[in-house]
C-alpha cells in the first residue's frame, strides 16, 4: 500500500471518529424522537430536568 493511501485511510479514520464523537448523541435523540408516537416535545427529550 502506498503512502498516499495510508494517509488517506488515516484521515478517513480520524474523520469517522470525529463524526461519531459529535454525532452519536444527536443520532440517539433523533431516533428517539422519530420513533415516538405521538412525537414528544424536543426539550422534554433532551433535558433530564424537564
Amino acid at each position: 500500500m502506498s503512502e498516499d493511501n495510508k494517509e488517506l485511510i488515516a484521515r478517513g479514520i480520524e474523520l469517522g471518529k470525529t463524526v461519531v464523537h459529535y454525532g452519536w448523541v444527536p443520532l440517539i435523540l433523533f431516533i428517539g424522537w422519530n420513533s415516538s408516537n405521538p412525537k414528544p416535545n424536543l426539550i422534554k427529550l433532551i433535558s433530564p430536568l424537564a
Binding site: 428517539g32 420513533s35 415516538s36 414528544p40 433532551i46 433530564p48 430536568l49 424537564a50
Partner: peptide
C-alpha cells in the same frame, strides 16, 4: 442523579 423518561423507549439522565 436525576433521570427522566419522556417515552417508554427513551430515557435521559443527568
Amino acid at each position: 442523579s436525576l433521570s427522566h423518561r419522556p417515552t417508554a423507549q427513551f430515557a435521559s439522565s443527568l
